[in-house]
Design a protein around this nucleic acid. Structure first.
Lengths: 105, 105
DNA sequence: CTATTTAGGACGTATTTTGTCCAAATATAA
DNA sequence: TTATATTTGGACAAAATACGTCCTAAATAG
């Protein structure tokens, strides 16, 4: 059993297709423009925290899951566009631990 | 022997203090405002790629090292401000591998 | 063929970040 | 102390980024 690697956009599209709803239908429930939801599903726009909240509620899934998907997308894209070493992410992990332990804000 | 956890700002300040130069002196060589360099050392501004290039050249260190320091800072701060799971960074790693393998841009 | 859905460009707006200018605060030296 | 240089930090304009909407074209469904 593999981990399924995807993006937040693809994940949202999958969720929507699983219940066979159109962009228009979901967008109106979430309270955003149809075109905007389309862009979000194609990763052309990033959902705001408010939008994520509404989306999570609508699909009855954990909001934290979507945030993790969004952030990890952003980090991955960033690593690739900067052509940075993957190790950068491990360094970031160490920093989180360190900063938390040392209460920097 | 421990890994030294720091920030890009602190690292730049250390580099400068090791050669006992003032902000003004370094800033002028790098071609930026004194105040801006001060802010960068205090992590109040993020150096641009151009600035990193000049700084690396001036201190004769690897530019990639500074970029890694900068990116890992950004990721760590982001994780903390979103109160996201550390695992988010591991997911990002997986995505980088996956995207590279699947040539997404 | 018609109706609906999705894709995508263009564009104004809003938000965020940068860089500069100054002045206040701090440190250094005499 | 007094003078000089350094560093800090706020305010603000400018630049860069990202968002959301409108509209049209393309694709899909019926």
């Amino acid at each position: 059993m593999e981990k399924s690697i995807t993006t937040i956009g693809e994940r949202l599209r999958t969720l929507r297709e699983e219940v066979s709803l159109s962009l228009r239908e979901v967008a109106s429930h979430i309270g955003i423009d149809t075109s905007l939801l389309g862009k979000i599903e194609r990763n052309e726009r990033q959902p705001t925290k408010e939008q994520i909240k509404h989306i999570a509620k609508f699909f009855k899934i954990d909001e934290k899951l979507l945030i993790k998907e969004l952030l990890s997308d952003q980090f991955a894209y960033r690593i690739m566009e900067e052509e940075a070493d993957i190790d950068t992410l491990k360094v970031a992990e160490d920093k989180v631990e360190y900063f938390k332990a040392n209460k920097k804000k």
